[in-house]
Simulated scan of single mutants.
Amino acid sequence: MTTTPLLETRDLTVRFGAVVAVNKVSVRIDAGEVVGLIGTNGAGKTTFLNMVTGYLRPTSGSIALQGRSTVGRTPRQLVAHGMARSFQVPQLFPDMTVREHILFALALAQGSAAGLLRPLHAPASDAEATAVLQRFGLLDIAERTVSLVPQGQRKLIDIAMALALKPRLLLLDEPTSGVSSAEKMPLMEVVFDAIRAGGVTVLFVEHDMDVVRRYVTRILAFRDGVMIADGTPEQVMQDAVVATAVLRGKPNQAAPVRSQAGAA
């Protein structure tokens, strides 16, 4: 019996004038996977995430979440259907406190405009926000405005907000970007403890290969808007095309996608 993938794209393509930023990318992600998306700058990784999460409409191709088309749906609508994301540059409100950010996400998670019309501070929501803040190690700075919070903690706030939306699928865009080397693994441990506790499926873009190797069950490699490999970390890291075009950041001739099944 074939199960319906949590996320599936088929021949997903987007053009900006004469430039093809993502070209016929077909991906299947099943529930429970942790998938890393790698590639050099300009490979189309964030553009792909922007299409999947409703921030950019594809030129052609399809996107389905649990078998239902999402093309044309807004990011807000996709949150209601179980998809959430964080951003390479955290999308935060500088004059709001850390706690208010989590409360705002919890209100959005209610799935209706009514949730945003209620007062953010209420006993039940405050208790839930406290639990989220504690899980992410943010309770000590809960009443601080985010403009006074260091970059690493801003990343955690952004990801905590995404998880507070209670998604089935979480997309992370370079979660360790701008974070010091010493902070990267501790930050990712906190994030993945929360992900595992929630049973959330993950697709994340990342340049740090140590982070990718440690956390993913599968890797997709992009180069020039094309997916050039799809497989286990061992398969993809040992692929000669990936090693040349992605890991060493050098141009290479077009090559067929390497998949887990070894299909071209």
Rank of each mutant, 00 (worst) to 15 (best):
R214Q: 15
M83F: 01
D30I: 00
A113F: 05
D210R: 11
G67Q: 07
A182F: 05
I157R: 01
P256N: 06
E128L: 09
M1V: 09
F48N: 04
S69Q: 07
G137L: 03
T13K: 02
V241T: 13
I159Y: 03
F222G: 10
N50W: 03
P90D: 07
A164R: 04
A164C: 12
M51E: 12
V211I: 15
G178K: 05
V236W: 01
G39F: 04
V27I: 14
D11I: 01
L172C: 08
S177R: 02
P75F: 03
M96C: 11
D210Q: 15
A21G: 08
Q153D: 15
V22L: 09
D30C: 01
N41S: 10
L78C: 09
S147H: 13
F204V: 03
G44C: 04
Q134M: 04
P58A: 06
V149W: 03
V52M: 05
R248K: 13
K155D: 08
A263G: 13
I141Q: 13
A221G: 10
A127D: 15
G115P: 09
V211G: 13
T46A: 02
L139Q: 13
S259Q: 06
S62F: 01
I29V: 12
A243L: 04
P256V: 00
K166A: 14
M237E: 14
Q260E: 14
L165W: 01
T70P: 03
T97E: 05
A164M: 07
E128Y: 02
A105V: 06
R10E: 15
A43P: 02
K155E: 08
T40D: 11
A194Q: 09
S147T: 09
G178A: 10
T201L: 09
L156M: 11
E206T: 10
A254F: 04
K166R: 14
M161K: 12
T130C: 08
A255F: 06
L49K: 03
A64D: 13
L117N: 10
V146C: 07
V226P: 02
P123H: 11
D224E: 14
S147N: 14
L106R: 08
G36L: 07
M209Q: 14
N252P: 03
V190M: 05
M96N: 11
L138G: 11
T46N: 08
L133A: 07
